[in-house]
Amino acid sequence: MTERSQLPLLTILERRNQVCLFSRSSCLDGVFTEVDSKGRYREVERSYFAAGILSNLLTNTDGWESEKQREDACEKLLELIEQYPALPSAMVSYKSFVPFSRIVQESKSNGAIMWCLWGVHHVLQHREKNNAPTYDKGYIEMFMESGLSPIVEEMSRGHSRHLHNIDIRVVHLARQIHEIVSAEPPITAGGAPVMTLAAAN
């Protein structure tokens, strides 16, 4: 067997090792209410970024030892993210929501999708003080351009063309995002808010 023919097997084994590491790792867990001397929720930060890796692994169905292992990892993500508190300030910023959109559209995992929605909801909540670092676009406009809007709206009604059984925790988070976006004035193609009669008065 040549080195080249062994690569697919090695890739599968490496992926299985990653799956085992992140689905069982203590880096996902923490005391999420703890605040350090600088006012940062370090445990949430560490868990959130580790959960992002697991979310990407969940999106790919290869490398899992069994469907039960994958389902257990999915449930672990749902339970973890449900424990994250509403943070008083943004712990992260994004230049694009497209990576989230890819996972939401491709993943069959409620846990992976909930991680994406939590990240989007988090930055939307703090968009006034922590807007998109590209400066020419705000997070609302980024959200609308990412393709997430119709998907999140559908999920907020308890439906999903991507998931057979959408989890109620995903539905609740989708509703919160939909409420934030719906409360904003419509955005034109040029990125400027549309002036309504109520706003003009």
Rank of each mutant, 00 (worst) to 15 (best):
M1E: 12
T2E: 08
R4T: 07
S5D: 14
L7W: 09
L10K: 12
L10W: 12
T11C: 15
L13S: 06
Q18V: 03
L21F: 10
S23Y: 01
S23E: 13
S25M: 02
S26I: 07
L28Q: 02
L28M: 11
T33Y: 04
E34R: 14
V35E: 12
D36E: 14
S37V: 11
K38P: 00
G39L: 04
Y41P: 11
R42Y: 06
E43L: 07
E45F: 02
R46F: 05
Y48P: 00
F49R: 03
F49A: 01
G52D: 06
G52M: 05
G52P: 12
N56A: 06
N56I: 01
G63W: 00
W64L: 09
S66E: 03
E67S: 14
E67V: 09
Q69K: 01
R70A: 00
E71S: 09
D72R: 11
A73I: 00
A73D: 00
C74N: 15
K76T: 13
L77K: 06
L77E: 09
L77N: 09
L78N: 11
L78M: 14
L80G: 02
I81H: 05
I81Y: 09
Q83I: 11
Y84A: 08
Y84V: 10
P85T: 14
L87Y: 14
L87E: 02
P88V: 03
S89R: 15
M91E: 13
M91N: 12
Y94L: 15
P99Q: 04
I103G: 03
V104M: 13
V104S: 09
S107T: 07
N110P: 04
I113Y: 03
I113H: 03
W118D: 01
V120W: 05
V120Q: 02
H121W: 12
H122K: 05
V123G: 08
H126F: 14
N130Y: 14
N130M: 13
N130G: 08
P133A: 10
T134I: 14
Y135P: 00
K137I: 12
G138S: 13
Y139P: 02
E141S: 12
M144D: 12
L148T: 00
S149A: 06
I151F: 07
E154K: 05
S156I: 02
R157C: 08
G158V: 02
S160A: 04
H162E: 07
H162P: 00
N165Q: 10
N165M: 03
I166T: 03
I168S: 08
V171I: 10
H172W: 05
H172R: 11
A174W: 00
R175S: 03
I177C: 13
I177F: 06
I180S: 02
A183N: 13
A183D: 15
P186E: 10
I187D: 06
A189M: 11
A192Y: 14
A192F: 15
P193F: 14
M195P: 01
A199P: 01
A200I: 07
